[in-house]
Amino acid sequence: MTSEYSNSPDDQLSAGDANQYLTFVLNGEEYGVEILRVQGIQGWDTVTPIPNSPDFVLGVMNLRGAIVPIIDLRKRFNMEAIPHGPTTVIIVVKVESADKPRTIGMVVDGVSEVYRLDDANIQALPEVGAGGVSSDYVKGLSTVDEKMLILLNIDKLFSGNELNHDAPAHMAKTA
């Protein structure tokens, strides 16, 4: 039920790991997060809703004894909702926000690959928004095999303020 792909930040990391990105698919685009932030990949499971929470917060889940909020990235980025399919997974990430580190699960359409990207291969985001995501949350863009990768800045995306009810105000301006 639970396929695990665990690579905790506490592990001894070689210089190369720092530049590895786990990519996932969301609404046809490929996004990436630093692999050292990824705590595991979790199959879909029962989520308990949190009363009066923003709609992109699906609820909380029991992850080995910890209560972890689950965020629907499609809803977060104002994308069209689709029913959960067989590839739908939850990527569990560690977020470093100002006050404390947090563990958060994000629902994505499916995981894709692990790429090693040099800093030189990452460009800053042009002024226009990318995909459905505001530029605040994007660390940069990269290209692999003619494919564009959107590298997310999850610390900003899931900071305490962004999880707050008013957060959607900051949301994507494009569509």
Binding site: P51, A66, N164
Partner: peptide
């Protein structure tokens, strides 16, 4: 709930 999320009124 605060540990990974935030305090929720009523809970």
């Amino acid at each position: 709930l605060e540990e990974n999320y935030m305090p929720v009124t009523g809970l």
